[in-house]
Design a binder for these strands. Structure first.
Length: 777
DNA sequence: GAGTTTGAAACT
DNA sequence: CAGTTTCAAACTC
């Protein structure tokens, strides 16, 4: 971990030690105050700073990035050092210490060992944790990987537990000072206070995270989304603990539930949790924003509540990454593993006995079609999903699978139990398992952006040395079938828009045959810096190259707005010899027709020519589009294909599910008002259920607004400001801005036609502070 | 697989 | 801002 990050972590601790909260906690038991330990720092750096960076990662897949960071960062931590630090008991709790000591033991192992040998500093936490549901997935191999899983999950547990603990502390504190109010009532109220204020914020982080993470294979993901989205804030203890935690993952058993809440608070445990969890830094940062003035005792409770609330919010942000990471990792190893039938055995960590190297890939989290573990794809390579023909659709489906396939080795990582052919076979098997019918592809597309850029997974991984040519050949071969093509840069260091990966906002990954590549997570800073420079020149440089319009048109319920003509290249092509009939043409490659923005010569673009067709917004164009749309409804097959290909559905969930890194990274304050609206979420998920294109639902007028509103980067809003901004800032003004786009995009126009970028750049906007201190401007 | 073509991106 | 160069993907053989 970088020193800056570590120092960043340490500083708040010292502040925390000076805080009344800390003193209060410290006075509750003789336990040593929170100390920074290498391991603790490291982990916290991972759990906070790294996660933060993960959310700023170009990839929408913070999960795997996080895992990689966890894995590698811990790997970077010398074991002996870790052990000694822990053994010295510098504030690390037993579970953590034992977990580290055991180098990858499962939670059960860790907890049991901790229980057997609890350090003096943490007399209670071990036993307390050991009370948790049995984790019989212990790894006899004590592989390190499970520990990381365990640790990350443990953090989740601990975080919640700590939240509970802090609350209980509050309760006890009140008990001490007040005339012992009804404990149960107080507890309930406390929970309300704890959750209520930030319910929306909590809500924000859950839908795509917890819902996805906990989705069972046979469960309808949308249902889960709705369920969790709507219920989580108000019934965290019930729905999450019961519905979600029920056997899916052991760690969920740590979730606070009313019953537990009503139990006698274990102050030591509370404190231990506070110590154990590195969150106090975060907590304090927020906590310090609350005025803890003279009347400490009085303000303390409030401060606690507020602080906890905010801290929890932050933690949820972290946990979100963690949980989602877990979700993604199931894919490679255990596709469609039946949790229902084997839920009890699915513990926090799965250490299959038949595998020498248990890895996260064997983590038994359910896989479901359309889960965010699917691929990002969108925005990649000229939005190549914008296809119209049936074979294109099939290609798209294959592409999704293919990219998944790409992701698998990556997700497996160096500790993958599968290597070489075995892994490939498994991947292929998984791919086959993931073959989806059309509807599921649609659903899959919805979440693909949420699914994180697969290449992100390659952080720190040793890309197998495959000769560039071989790789390229491989990618060339695969490009037609699964679109797993990657870049082949030689001179650009993959830090220029020449590089498809970089341009697409993803890190280069194994299939790439690039040379001297800097487009890797380990060079993230450089990548972001470069990206920033490029964006400074052209703010939409990383925007999807294909911009499409969405509108509601026919009443058939079919998405009729899938015509290629409804989408346009953001700048237009400049072809001279290819006649826009080859993939040299970005319009053609993007599956969209040429527009007046194009300066092509002899255009014969099969998807539409600029001759007589102006860019979207033009009256005639709209009419023609509607006509085409209606005609398409008469051709169900093609219409459906188009729906699958160019539907707006992916656009909405992409935005709604906060799945883009940018949104992930958005401050909760910003995020809350829009995404936190359960009704919107419900609408979203409902539509996902019914496979009805979002734009056709009237109620999505407002949804669309919200989607394209506060939470949507200006670049995605497709409104006048975007266009004007593009015009003003483009280094190549004559090419960037479609002249008509912004002029007619009124909210009332034909049910809210909107410009929607075909995809969302995977890289976070570089307006976003990499260090997450000022996420969005 | 090597070489060519092409057009976007970058540079001047 | 236009012209030129660089670059890597697409394409051809």
């Amino acid at each position: 971990m970088d020193t800056p990050e570590r120092s960043k972590v340490v500083t708040p601790i010292s502040k925390f030690e000076d805080s009344p909260v800390f003193n209060f906690i410290n006075n509750l038991s003789p336990i040593q105050p929170v100390k920074s330990v290498n391991a603790a720092q490291t982990f916290h750096s991972l759990s906070y700073a790294s996660i933060t960076s993960i959310f700023t990662s170009p990839h929408v897949n913070p999960q795997k990035e996080l895992r990689s960071l966890l894995r590698h960062s811990f790997s970077e931590l010398p074991k002996h050092e870790t052990s000694s630090d822990i053994d010295n008991g510098h504030g690390l709790c037993v579970g953590e210490a034992q977990a580290i000591r055991s180098s990858g033991c499962t939670v059960k192992c860790s907890l049991n060992e901790a229980n057997l040998d609890p350090p003096d500093e943490c007399p209670d936490v071990s036993s307390d944790l050991a009370k948790s549901e049995p984790c019989d997935g212990g790894s006899p191999n004590h592989n390190i990987t499970p520990f990381y899983i365990a640790r990350s999950d443990l953090k989740w547990d601990v975080s919640l537990d700590k939240r509970k603990g802090l609350f209980l502390t509050q309760v006890e504190h009140q008990d001490k000072h007040d005339s012992k109010p009804n404990e149960e009532e107080l507890t309930q109220c406390g929970w309300e206070n704890l959750i209520g204020d930030d319910a929306d914020n909590l809500l924000i982080f859950d839908p795509s995270t917890e819902a996805d993470a906990f989705d069972g294979p046979n469960e309808n993901s949308q249902e889960n989304d709705v369920k969790l989205c709507n219920s989580f804030p108000s019934s965290l203890q019930r729905d999450v603990a019961d519905d979600v935690a029920e056997g899916l993952q052991l760690n969920v058993s740590f979730l606070p539930c009313p019953e537990e809440m009503n139990s006698v608070p274990d102050v030591d445990h509370i404190k231990e949790q506070v110590e154990m969890d590195q969150t106090p830094q975060i907590f304090l940062e927020n906590f310090q924003n609350h005025s803890l003035t003279s009347d400490r005792n009085h303000k303390l409770d409030y401060g606690f509540t507020s602080g906890i609330s905010i801290a929890c919010k932050v933690e949820f942000q972290q946990q979100r990454g963690t949980r989602r990471r877990c979700l993604n990792f199931e894919v490679p190893g255990v596709p469609k593993m039946s949790l229902q039938s084997d839920s009890t055995s699915h513990n926090l960590i799965s250490c299959p006995s038949d595998e020498e190297h248990p890895s996260v890939d064997s983590h038994p989290v359910p896989l479901r079609a359309g889960s965010p573990c699917m691929l990002p794809g969108i925005g990649l390579h000229l939005n190549t999903l914008a296809k119209t023909s049936r074979d294109k659709l099939l290609t798209r489906g294959a592409m999704l699978s293919g990219r998944r396939l790409i992701s698998m080795p990556s997700s497996a990582g160096p500790l993958s139990p599968f290597t070489g052919q075995e892994h490939q076979d498994k991947s292929l098997s998984i791919q086959r398992d993931l073959e989806l019918p059309g509807n599921e592809i649609q659903d899959l597309m919805i979440v693909q952006n949420d699914a994180s850029e697969v290449p992100a997974l390659t952080y720190g991984e040793d890309l197998r040395p495959i000769s560039p040519k071989k790789k390229r050949r491989k990618s060339e071969i695969g490009s037609e079938s699964d679109s797993c093509k990657r870049c082949n840069c030689k001179k650009s260091q993959c830090l220029k828009l020449y590089c498809e990966c970089f341009a697409a906002g993803v890190f280069c990954v194994e299939p790439c045959s690039c040379q001297g590549c800097f487009n890797k997570p380990i060079h993230q800073e450089k990548v972001l810096t470069t990206r920033k420079q490029i964006e400074s020149r052209n703010p939409i440089a990383f925007a999807p190259k294909v911009i499409r319009a969405s509108e509601s048109s026919c009443d058939t319920g079919e998405d009729t707005n899938k015509t290629p003509a409804s989408a346009r290249h953001k700048r237009g092509c400049n072809c001279k010899k290819s006649s826009c009939l080859k993939k040299y043409c970005e319009c053609y490659q993007g599956g969209v027709g040429c527009s007046v923005s194009c300066r092509c010569e002899g255009c014969k673009n099969a998807f539409g020519r600029k001759d007589g067709i102006s860019l979207l917004g033009d009256e005639e164009f709209d009419q023609e589009e509607e006509k085409n749309a209606c005609e398409e409804t008469d051709k169900p097959d093609e219409g459906q294909q188009n729906a699958n290909i160019q539907t707006d559905i992916p656009q909405f969930p992409e935005n709604m599910s906060q799945s883009t890194p940018t949104q992930d990274f958005r401050p909760p304050q910003t995020l809350a008002p829009t995404v936190g609206d359960s009704s919107q979420l419900e609408s979203c998920t409902t539509l996902r259920n019914c496979d009805i294109p979002l734009p056709q639902c009237g109620k999505f007028g407002s949804l669309g607004k919200s989607i394209l509103g506060d939470d949507t980067p200006a670049i995605l809003r497709g409104n006048r400001s975007l266009i004007s901004g593009v015009k003003a800032s483009s280094p190549n003004r004559k090419r960037v801005s479609p002249p008509h786009i912004g002029t007619r995009l009124t909210p009332n126009h034909k049910g809210g036609r909107k410009l929607i970028l075909k995809s969302i750049p995977s890289f976070p906007s570089l307006n976003t502070d990499v260090n997450s201190e000022n996420p969005m401007k």
